[in-house]
Write a protein that binds this DNA or RNA. Sequence first.
RNA 1: CGGGACGUAGCGCAGUUUGGUAGCGCGCAGCGUUCGGGACGCUGAGGUCGCGGGUUCAAAUCCCGCCGUCCCGACCA
Length: 568
Amino acid sequence: MRLSCLFAPTLREDPADAEIPSHRLLLRAGFIRPVMAGVYTTLPLGLRTMRKIERIVREEMDASGAQEIRMPIVLPADPWKATGRYELYGDVMFKLTDRHDRELVLGPTQEEVAAPLIAGDLPSYRDLPINVYQVEWKYRDEFRPRFGLLRGREFLMKDAYSFDRDEEGMRESYRIMYEAYERVFERCGLDFVVVEADPGQIGGGVNHEFMARASVGEDLFVECENGDYLADTEAARPMAPEPAGEGTEPMVEVDTPDTPTIEALAAFLGVEPSRTLKCVMFDVAGRSTAVLVPGDREVSVNKLEKLVFPAKVRVFEDGDFEARGFVKGYVGPQGFGEDVLVVADHLVRGGRDWITGSNARDRHVRGANVGRDFRVDRWEDVVEFREGDRCPVDGGSLRIGRSIVVGHIYQLGTNYSAPLGARFVDEDGTEKPYVMGSYGIGISRIMAAAVEQRHDDLGIVWSKALAPFEVVVLVANQDDERVCAEGERIYRELGQMGVDVLIDDRELTAGVKFADADLIGYPVQVVVGRRGIEQGSVDLKLRATGERSSAALVDATRAVVDLLASAP
RNA sequence: CGGGACGUAGCGCAGUUUGGUAGCGCGCAGCGUUCGGGACGCUGAGGUCGCGGGUUCAAAUCCCGCCGUCCCGACCA
């Protein structure tokens, strides 16, 4: 390909509307252009990179036995109502009506299409398992599209659906996809981690997220400093502390005027907040529930909700305190009746002689101890994760990492096949719902994630696998016939050797070509110029390291191929 | 949906406070000189100042309404 013929408009200045590196650089380097919030046109360079990602995905999917199909994007709304996702997605679904006033949606994923599809033509267990996939545009009317391709309203996704006769088969299909996904992200050159994720509201089964590390990522995960533990922030279960043992102080009441908050209390008494015991009140399915955590920690409502699911959790409002006889700001667990459920975080075992509320205004108690002074009904993990918590494997310090979710796989079970009536005939002659799995990869998101991970002040630094072109032949003196001829020769020879090569044959000064080459981020640059030719050489540059070298003109093509082989 | 900012030439911005001929840089076109890290000179094209209404002799500028874009938050496979 000739750059003089390629629609690859680069921008010298940063676009005003782009903040994060991937958005800024994909715009500047001419990979994408905005159409409206969260919707982009993919330009030739962007399309080439996108196709390379797709190719890797297709190769690994095909190799794992999945079959490519293509499903429609415009879909009837009814199946979505049947599975409950019409309501669940709510305004995030693009909805439209046709001329007959039929309700339609644009697909945000396609379980509702895939399940009936397989049920329609594949009634026997003998035909299972089956795994179908597609690469298609997905539509979600995000509350707040942002970060360019990272959270768009239209995005390219590979989605796959597996169908098995039983749980065991589903787990095997899932394992195969898990391994295929690892290969996909490795081949894309991404620095990624896999974490077992939070089971969502629907689905509810085992699921894993494949996360590309990125400082701008919206998704958080927890990892051990020693690299032996990874988890979703909501699923992280830090190591419980050593029990602190029996209390040594008698419990006494003290006057603490105007100290309804931990902060005020700790300041008044001149102690660390961690010496106090926080007692947060919730209504759980109508029952008053006290949750105990050290004063310097926060209760994770999300974790509490999971503990008591399906019961509903509601934080106490002012009226609840009065109506049920609690004193807001001065609640302590001493003397609670059996009607109050007392849940304590494991961290509470690590302390003794607590300072906590006295259940009377402007008074607290000191020396409160578990067992002797108050009871605990359930010991659970209910604190919000905090950096520095102990790793459950080796006790190392846990920290939070930010990432971009580029893949997500689910064991769905019969959550979709059952409500949709997607059944097969099993060996015993009875009809059963398929046991399904679903597997997504964000193709367009990988492109952005890769740029987040690989860029510098000059521009993008593509890996060989995803670069729109592997090599650019940069003609430094376009007005010099000898220079042009040598550039063309090297370009031609590289193409014949199967290298994905581009020649910058534009009538521009060398400086512009250098700047564009660094911005677009081809892994290898070959500079053919008058200066070199007079000495019988060309210059090579490896974009990833900035390392420059030169090669004999006659040997240039082989030198480029060798350098490319060493490129990341 | 709550909070904030912005909208002036293809891109980046000034001008709005204090109403009075619409500007700068880059890019683009022509000519000439340059030619290995975003060259230089001359000439030139390019504008419903986001849209609608209002105030005024006069609105990019003041007032009202709307639309769009981005950022923070809430939400989320």
